[in-house]
């Protein structure tokens, strides 16, 4: 899923400094699961912003509302009763960065992102998330024991490990596991380490962001 993280409150306060009536919109999708922008986090951020503004003698009328998803126009539509009557002068979205863009596309309002959309990942343990994919658009992990060297090797090497791999850790930081050590261990355990003798050829990055903004059209699903 998409993993995101709330921006520092100071930054959010600065964004909405000139506004008095703000709609704070959460999302029940990925950001609820990664505890960044669901109903609960909306409540906490809303409260914090109101407290800060009240203390500053510049109270903020902030209403909280969490949508089923913000990456679907169908749900964005549900904001119409709130956003089409001048009740709010700005929107603060707690979804991944698709949300604020969809809201801005639909309503002529100032929209701010309250989160930093960080990566595609999964949770390692409660409260810890890590990156597992860089959406290169042409998955090749089956060549590497099912591990992704594009997103998980600091240098995206396809023929690693580099000379900096040491004791299972990446040269960049002790906090980063060297994915090439993990690939080697996994291939060894699978009895496939010989496959690592083969040079992995130069990758076609045109399916990645390098080919320009991407779009998927599924004719079978179109109405």
């Amino acid at each position: 899923m998409v993993i995101a993280e709330r921006k520092p409150i100071e930054e959010i306060l600065a964004m909405v400094a000139d506004f008095k009536k703000v709609l704070l919109v959460g999302c029940k999708g990925c950001v609820t699961v990664c505890c960044a922008g669901g109903t609960k986090e909306v409540g906490i951020l809303g409260s914090a912003l109101r407290i800060a503004r009240k203390k500053a003698g510049n109270p903020l009328a902030l209403v909280e509302h969490t949508l089923e998803r913000q990456c679907d126009p169908e749900y964005i539509e549900q904001l119409a009763p709130m956003l089409e009557n001048g009740e709010f002068d700005a929107v603060l979205s707690m979804a991944c960065s698709v949300g604020p863009q969809f809201i801005a596309k639909r309503y002529l309002k100032q929209v701010f992102p309250a989160l930093n959309t960080t990566f595609i990942g999964g949770s390692l343990e409660h409260g810890v998330w890590a990156e597992f994919c860089q959406s290169c658009g042409n998955c090749i992990i089956h060549n590497f024991g099912g591990l992704c060297p594009i997103s998980r090797c600091s240098k995206s090497l396809m023929n690693g490990p580099c000379g900096g791999s040491s004791g299972g850790k990446c040269e960049v930081s002790n906090e980063i596991d060297c994915v090439w050590q993990l690939i080697y261990d996994r291939m060894t355990a699978l009895g496939q380490v010989d496959r690592m003798r083969k040079i992995f050829p130069i990758k076609d990055w045109s399916t990645s962001r390098d080919g320009g903004p991407r779009k998927i059209t599924r004719e079978d699903l179109k109405l």
Partner: peptide
């Protein structure tokens, strides 16, 4: 931590 951030 949050209160510290917002000056309370």
């Amino acid at each position: 931590k949050l209160l510290r951030e917002i000056g309370i």
